[in-house]
Design a protein around this nucleic acid. Structure first.
Lengths: 348, 348
DNA sequence: CACCGTGCAGAAAGCGCTTGCTGTGACGCT
DNA sequence: AGCGTCACAGCAAGCGCTTTCTGCACGGTG
């Protein structure tokens, strides 16, 4: 048998109620009594029963963080920042909360299942990171879930994810469109006219927005959008490698490759090198996100820096009710163009 | 008011007990009844109350994963692999479990607090990743906690962490010593005699083991160990950068730098480049872990590959009781030397 | 001196679920 | 026909905590 509140109460010669109040510190207890209780807790090595406590109090100290891929630093960095504000041990502000990082693998079904699991645990808050899937039924299902969570008192924050109207969710969205546009304009400014684009998976908001920004830049400069220069793939290095080979196969005259993110860009670099092309002399390459490793690539990667850490921290604070939500429950977080060695003027 | 089991029972015209049994599927229920119940659940949009369920059943479906730094792919990759086996949504085997990734930031206090939190939640299992802190009081405190968790029926698995004797914990330890030795021997084999070593933080098992392997290699080849060529730092890029400058300041004749891990190695590369040295022509560099980005560095990084994904997956299965623990509750996972462009023969 | 606010502590009623035990018909056996 | 068996369903007793409400002693006030 494990030690219970009652055991502590007996040892401290007080009622269970008093022990509970000492432990929660939300009710006046005489200093001498408190000390007696604390000593008993210590002597018995008592640990509160979480489920029982959550049941009785109808709240829990769980905070869920949903990420697409925990092995990807893009999410790791955000999760880390969110968690640091959530508290848990260390983030001393207001009660120990257990931050739960849930790996959805980008699958909408798992996303829903995790949300249900968190709802079941009566989570105090939920932060969803990364782009959303655009398929209507899923979007609707997720929205319904979020609404239910909101109604149940769970604070819902979207970090790096477009807003979900009428769900009570607070959104911190990345300006993927603007960043992508700026990036492509940088390349155009250097003189590039034939640009390949390696997009992310279809039906993802992030993919669509970045692609839209790219297209907008082209159009604004009177460059016709050639769909043959757009290839879709996953958000990983290998996908970037393959897509680049495909791009090269389709059009050997391109002078720049814009990638959906940094990992894809590094794959692209590898493919170009393996094809005997120099970067940026023969082909310029650009990524997105500015993950830490981009700087160590050769040449270092031109990209758009997203303030993942800041955004995550802010999302965490909002989730904890420690910061005011932005007006209209929506804030747009801008990226910043980082020009480095992988982009240069086109050959000739 | 939220929907409760009783509401569902009323609607399905059965007793709450029957609803519970349908939901848990651990007791015979007539097909027709089950269907009626399931329909009611659906119609009412019922979600089980997790805390209540955990309280009554005296078990929970939480599994804790402790990592030092979730933003570091080293841990991200392991966590991802562990989680994929834990189940949660997707890992279909046996009940939905909620994998909780906890970020300790490498702090022993937080580690303890998280363990207490998990103990409080009556976690089904706990997986601790990464090296341990060597300070005696902390080691003892952690061991005591692990013992308590074990006694309470929580399965404890150590992944990439040395064994904790008499705690009931199952350990999958990395052979850091052997890997480091092999790595240094590779450099010695190339002809290097003055090797700098950038070690991790003091009082960490990983740091010590890797350093021991390095020293063992030197000694085995009759190369005197010069403590001035060993610098301690953190496990990150910046630390590698600074340590390398320090190393260069202490001895300009070194021809190779062995780093505590890949991130540190990349920092070292940057420092060398900034000092006007070529890699590997002037100085060879080697890392450890073989994280994905090492291959895109210029030149690509010679390192020791640790099977993070495999080890994590195995740890996850063991935690779920889906795989037999190794004999003696301890298995050693070996690394594999990956020779790439950053190491070469010394100049001259 | 009677009265009331105040500061603490306890009694007890749940929170929503699980599960051991107790029926209760239907069925097959002797 | 009588009875043991089986498959299923319900009863009710908690699981360990929180919290409302009540109780009590004390000291200041009119």
């Amino acid at each position: 048998m494990t030690v219970t509140l009652a055991d502590v109460a007996a040892r401290a010669q007080v009622s269970p109620a008093t022990v509970s109040r000492v432990l929660n510190g939300n009710y006046p207890v005489a200093a001498s009594t408190r000390e007696r209780v604390l000593r008993a807790v210590d002597e018995l090595d008592y640990v509160l029963n979480g489920p029982a406590s959550s049941l009785a109090a109808a709240t829990s100290d769980l905070v869920g963080i949903l990420v697409h891929d925990i092995a990807d630093p893009f999410f790791g960095i955000m999760a880390s920042a969110i968690q640091s504000e959530i508290g848990g041990p260390g983030g001393r502000a207001g009660g120990e909360r257990l931050a739960v990082v849930c790996n959805t693998g980008g699958s909408p079904e798992r996303e829903l299942t995790y949300l249900t699991l968190l709802q079941r645990q009566r989570a105090a808050a939920v932060v969803l990171t990364g782009g959303a899937v655009e398929s209507a039924p899923h979007a609707e299902a997720v929205a319904a879930k979020l609404r239910k969570l909101s109604d149940a008192g769970t604070r819902v924050v979207l970090c790096g994810r477009p807003p979900a109207p009428d769900t009570g969710a607070i959104a911190l969205a990345f300006d993927n469109r603007g960043g992508a546009r700026e990036l492509t304009e940088h390349l155009i400014g250097l003189g590039h006219r034939r640009l390949g684009y390696i997009a992310g998976p279809l039906e993802r908001t992030t993919t669509r927005h970045r692609l839209e920004g790219h297209r907008a830049a082209l159009e604004a400069h009177g460059i016709p959008v050639d769909d043959r220069l757009i290839v879709h793939g996953r958000y990983d290095r290998q996908s970037g490698y393959e897509a680049t080979l495909e791009l090269l196969r389709r059009d050997t005259s391109l002078t720049a490759v814009v990638a959906a993110n940094d990992s894809v860009a590094l794959g692209a670099c590898a493919a170009l090198r393996d094809s005997g092309l120099r970067i940026p002399d023969d082909v310029s390459v650009a990524g997105f996100d500015d993950l830490p490793f981009g700087i160590d690539a050769a040449p270092s990667l031109t990209t758009v820096r997203l303030p993942l850490s800041d955004a995550g921290a802010r999302a965490g604070r909002i989730a904890m009710g420690r910061e005011e939500p932005p007006p209209g429950d929506l804030a747009t977080v801008r990226g910043e163009l980082m020009v480095r060695g992988s982009s240069g003027m086109p050959r000739g």
